[in-house]
């Protein structure tokens, strides 16, 4: 709180130096971990993005649903189409207040190009219980290349606040066993 002596530029003590060195090495290590995982890890944040518009994206989702619908199922009392596209293909999910559309059916161990976008507000794609969370922004077609490593029924929770019905915005993904 008081003004220091005239000359306070003094060499650091032994303890400060050793802590500074250790802390710096730790910081370098933290930095290196990210590119290491980027090249060798199996879970990386998707970066593939396309500019879109709600109308264009909505049309794509409708075409996708028309082509690959195999049945119906309910989420929170609402009946939605269940859509199963062949492994390796592009699959679409549409977010809008307060619904995830449609219900996707995927196959365990197969790769899919999952498109996500919103027709109105920002939403949060939160796949549970595997706990993968991505931001959904209108006008941005976000492509995540995913491979389910577990099977069963998964829930998409909206985790970006989108007005009062936010907590009711729940979707479903079904993953079947490998054939």
């Amino acid at each position: 709180m008081l003004a220091p002596e005239k000359n306070w530029w003094k060499p650091m003590g032994r303890m400060e130096k050793s802590w500074l060195t250790v802390a710096f090495v730790w910081c370098v290590f933290l930095t290196v971990m990210m590119p290491l995982w980027y090249f060798y890890g199996k879970q990386n944040v998707p970066t593939e993005t396309y500019k879109t518009s709600p109308a264009d994206y909505g049309a794509k989702v409708n075409a996708f649903v028309e082509q690959y619908t195999i049945g119906e199922d309910t989420v929170n009392g609402v009946t939605l189409p269940v859509v199963a596209a062949p492994p390796g293909s592009d699959v679409y999910i549409r977010a809008s207040t307060w619904q995830w559309y449609p219900i996707l059916q995927l196959e365990k161990g197969e790769e899919y190009r999952l498109h996500i976008s919103s027709l109105d507000l920002q939403h949060g794609f939160s796949l549970q219980p595997v706990n993968i969370n991505l931001q959904v922004i209108p006008g941005y077609d976000y492509v995540a290349t995913i491979t389910p490593t577990s099977s069963g029924e998964f829930t998409i929770v909206c985790n970006e606040y989108c007005f009062v019905g936010h907590h009711t915005m729940v979707g479903k993904v079904i993953v079947t066993e490998e054939k």
């Binding site: 933290l30 930095t31 970066t47 969370n133 941005y140 976000y142």
Partner: peptide, 29 residues
């Protein structure tokens, strides 16, 4: 913005780490 669409890995990694966790270094000091 780490899981936002439209931003590259490099942009996210450099920025999120404060260049090289140098601000974290400040706090550790």
């Amino acid at each position: 913005l780490l899981v936002d669409p439209g931003l590259s890995f490099a942009w996210k990694a450099v920025n999120t780490s404060y260049a090289m966790y140098l601000a974290v270094l400040g706090s550790m000091m």
